[in-house]
Design a protein around this nucleic acid. Structure first.
Lengths: 192, 192
DNA sequence: GACTCTAGAGAACGCTCGTTCTCCTGGGTA
DNA sequence: TACCCAGGAGAACGAGCGTTCTCTAGAGTC
């Protein structure tokens, strides 16, 4: 089997299991079984579990942010004059769809941070990078909408709060609640 | 040694270690060493590690919410006509002080949920109870301030987002940012 | 003073899990 | 055909850890 195909299979299995059950409770044996690869092959591709965890978070980060950006770009419709803030609010629509996915289990980075942030410096670093990138994206959307850039902070906090709460309560509501609050903040920001 | 004293010592050690390093990475041996109790005594008081975890979360929940309520009550000053929402905003002041504590390591329940929410039903249940109680308290503050009770949701989400972000970025700023957003929402709510 | 019960110190047990090793098969190559 | 070697299956190793067991000391009681 091609090495890139094997890597992908390993990461697919790792992502599914790590995200669903947590990192520490999933053993390399579980990943072997789920991926159909041998332990030998797994350790050739990822010399230690920690490397696999890093690769899992990296790949998921790229995909998560890309999916978000693709969704938000729908709202960049040149045909109609976009309301300032439409694309900012689209973030919460996307969160709502994500929360509704059957295998939604919270934010992978918040979960990983709770599990390993205190122990693994590499995990902590990746979580910080992911959150900084997400926040940077939110700020960028705010600024491109011509809104005061200070709006980025509370919008980001609302999104984080919605992710955590959706996970714990197993509900999609927080997305709509956060969206509504963001709408009010945007309206206030436009006046001020 | 008195049994209640021993229980307290066990919980003190457990809380310090679990909160700082996570639950799974702390062994019963670590708790024995830190508490000065023997394993035998520990297992008399808590027949399994899971019981100790439950007791840790329960005791911390009671103390956390009591400290918050005590702080907020300062703002219940009958001498002056309190601004509606003062006590709601006091929640964020208190969060800011908490974030600044040297051993602050995020929200114990969010962390525990990330670590064990998928594995341990008892942990998941306690996290949900704690968050429901906190949210209930926020809603109560909002209503007692004569504000529209729908304001409870976004204020709660801002608080959650602030906790998560303060932990990951190791910064106290999110408390002030969330407070500022809450101020705007409250002002808008008073008008609407 | 003999007995009993509690508790301390820490060894021991059994299981899990990350990692490595052994043995074997099969395909490519001179 | 003889050789080589990448890879598969899974046993084996070693450490960590939750839990229990052993042995001992001491305090309370008749």
């Amino acid at each position: 089997m091609d090495s890139t195909v094997a890597t992908e299979r390993a990461l697919d299995a790792a992502e599914r299991l790590f995200y669903q059950r947590g990192i520490q409770t999933v053993g390399m044996d579980d990943i072997r079984t789920a991926s159909g690869l041998s332990l030998k092959r797994l350790y050739q591709l990822f010399p230690a579990k920690e490397r696999l965890v890093e690769a899992y978070l990296e790949r998921r980060d790229a995909r998560w942010r890309q999916r978000l950006a693709e969704y938000v770009e729908q709202y960049e419709n040149p045909e109609r004059p976009a309301e300032a803030g439409d694309r900012v609010l689209a973030v919460f629509d996307w969160l709502g769809e994500w929360f509704a996915e059957p295998d939604f289990n919270g934010c992978a980075w918040i979960n990983s941070y709770g599990e390993l942030g205190a122990t693994s410096e590499s995990v902590a670093r990746q979580v910080r990078l992911h959150k900084a990138a997400f926040k940077g994206y939110v700020v960028e959307l705010v600024e491109r909408a011509g809104l005061p850039s200070g709006l980025g902070d509370p919008v980001f906090l609302l999104a984080e709060g919605a992710m955590v709460t959706a996970a714990i309560t197993r509900s999609t509501e927080p997305a709509a609640q956060a969206a509504q609050a963001a709408r009010v903040l945007i309206a206030a920001g436009r006046q001020g």
